[in-house]
Design a protein around this nucleic acid. Structure first.
Lengths: 241, 241
DNA sequence: GAGTGGTCTAGACCACTTA
DNA sequence: AAGTGGTCTAGACCACTCT
């Protein structure tokens, strides 16, 4: 069974994958434990863990400390275009969406000046920073930080409540913002930091997709700069031109 | 020095990172070897490797077997919009771009039917599969596989040569395709497989960004379906709406 | 307390690069 | 041949979940 062509952990990983692709497990079902795999394939636990890490990075499985490894679900298709509302952007309407406001803070110019630059303001102006988590079927899917100039949205914190939450709707109702246009976005991949790991409840081996974008009002003024971090193993982002 | 707050490898990783951010090394310079780090921080090699793996995944460093770990360069900004030519999409014009055709093959319908579905053809039709590597300053940056219907582009292989290469220019000159429109793209992240690792010359810990897109001619017919794999540590993809 | 995944050590050999 | 990163084993303890 063991050849010398490929690294051992990769052979093991492929054996595991072939079982998965034969649909031997249901979606969301628990896979054998590392100890069980170790007995099955007769390799060290380290090798089993490398094989599992590979499958996790590829999005086939996810792991939870103390519970086990589970077969991952299909990716969620998400539209990142001009539509600005979360629930409208999730293309599969059978999925339940919800949002939670983690916190609001009023900050001064950031150190590197990235935010002030993106908002086209100067460093003496204050900025709202909103941390929001968006859920799909109660699973954290996106962790977003939105920056908005305080001068344009005075008293914003007073209009917010933690439970139900649509930012753009609120901007329309309370501040008379009629149209919001996302003109461009930047996509990058990354490895989650501590914040992303705890907000999205993922392990550090799952890559995240970063989407940075600016929104302008009808007059062309920048009203928001936001950084969204998507679970890499769950998201499939669709862009239409 | 060693607290119990965070995992050891993360503390080590942060110490390494603080050195990097203090600009103690030049871009592209070699970092200390794992053995040197091991002596410096007095931890096991496994721990050093986990710390380095973290930095690698975050895009700060890259590693080459037998040579060492090196300080990574800044990300390349790349425009993924309607522009269809590689050299035009790299936003920093000071960077040298080049392409290489890895191979052309004439294939039948794929097993899962993804390609035939995307090309809007049926399974009995043959399809050209072109593997192309695009370089930035002679470093592999994108690994693309393009699928084109053979019925639309007969004898395509005869027009290709491995060295200089612009696919869309060729389609215009040889097949009279006047306008090419990319209407939508799908973005995903992933972990590189064997093919991507060897084509992009990366290690398996570097995530890749997958961009799948279709192109249509002026008449609205699909003329190409392509899957591009960007080096996650090098690419910053810009989308304009 | 038992079982799970997460971190860590110590030591070994392999594959690749450089001299 | 020496040095580097890549893979692998064996064994240990920790953190978290479930019963």
């Amino acid at each position: 069974m063991i050849t010398k062509e490929k690294p051992l952990f990769e052979q093991v990983s492929n054996l595991m994958l072939s079982q998965i692709e034969k649909r031997e497990y249901d979606v969301g079902a628990r896979l054998p434990s590392e100890e069980q795999y170790r007995n099955k394939y007769r390799v060290s636990r380290h090798t089993i863990r490398e094989a599992l890490r590979k499958l996790e990075g590829e999005g086939y499985i996810y792991r939870i400390q103390g519970k086990g490894a589970f077969l991952a679900k299909k990716k969620v298709s998400y539209d990142v275009s001009k539509k600005t509302q979360f629930s409208q952007s999730v293309l599969d309407t059978s999925l339940a969406t919800s949002s939670r406001l983690l916190g609001v803070s009023l900050i001064y110019a950031d150190e590197d000046g990235e935010i002030t630059e993106k908002l086209e303001i100067n460093r003496t102006q204050k900025v709202w920073a909103l941390d929001i988590i968006r859920y799909i079927n109660r699973v954290p899917f996106i962790y977003t930080t939105s920056y908005l100039p305080e001068s344009r949205f005075p008293g914003l914190d007073g209009h917010l409540n933690g439970k139900l939450f649509s930012l753009y709707k609120l901007l329309g109702e309370k501040y008379g913002i009629l149209s919001i246009n996302r003109t461009s976005s930047v996509f990058e991949v990354g490895i989650p930091g501590r914040e992303e790991i705890s907000a999205l409840q993922i392990s550090k081996t799952i890559p995240i997709m970063l989407v940075k974008s600016r929104a302008r009002d009808g007059g062309g003024n920048v009203i928001e700069y936001c950084v969204s971090r998507f679970r890499g193993d769950m998201a499939s982002l669709k862009v239409t031109f």
